[in-house]
């Protein structure tokens, strides 16, 4: 079923959401992909301060294309979440309540989502032009030298996703018969 969601998403609201719910997100997302995760993890490991607090945040796994004239951001669909699996528990321990990407996750991520009463949401892979229309503001927070892998904060409206792992640990990638 279709639901409008305002970010930040409180714990009570997260607990009400179930796998396959079709959500339209409004509010702030933190954008980070491979390189930003590696750098944030290194900062955490050495005990250095992060460039932002991750408490209550929603991370979107994405690296945008160049913005066309008149665009706020270039094409900006999700990247494959599985590559961020080794970092996800660490980020959720820092306060991240939901992540957005595409494709399946590890068992470790499912456990981390459950523990945090969090969510894993899938955005629609390859739909970069559509997602660019949902972004109303964008600014670089850190790692500007990494180009499309910089850490960003974006404001989105009517940003379509599907709940893929819910706070109870149910996953849409569980029940599929993959026997040939």
């Amino acid at each position: 079923m279709r639901k409008e969601i305002q970010i930040p998403i409180g714990e009570d609201e997260r607990k009400k959401l179930r796998i396959y719910d079709q959500l339209y997100l409004n509010g702030q997302l933190i954008v980070a992909r491979d390189s930003a995760h590696k750098r944030l993890a290194a900062l955490l490991k050495e005990g250095s301060p992060l460039p932002l607090s991750l408490k209550g945040k929603v991370i979107y796994y994405m690296g945008p294309a160049q913005a066309a004239v008149g665009q706020i951001i270039g094409s900006c669909g999700p990247t494959t979440s599985a590559r961020m699996d080794p970092f996800t528990a660490m980020m959720m321990d820092e306060g991240v309540v939901a992540t957005i990407g595409k494709g399946p996750r590890s068992e470790e991520v499912r456990d981390a989502v459950k523990k945090a009463n969090g969510l894993y949401l899938t955005a629609f892979g390859g739909c970069g032009a559509l997602y660019a229309k949902c972004v109303k503001k964008s600014r670089v927070i850190a790692f500007v030298e990494d180009g499309p892998e910089a850490l960003l904060e974006i404001e989105v409206e009517n940003f379509p996703v599907i709940v893929a792992i819910d706070s109870a640990g149910n996953s849409v990638f569980d029940k599929k018969k993959l026997d040939v």
């Binding site: 094409s75 669909g77 739909c127 970069g128 032009a129 559509l130 660019a132």
Partner: peptide
């Protein structure tokens, strides 16, 4: 969503995928 995305990319002449 793919169909909608292809429409936008074609009209706006921007990459369909980042």
């Amino acid at each position: 969503m793919i169909e909608e995305n292809l429409k936008i990319a074609g009209q706006d002449k921007v990459p369909m995928c980042q």
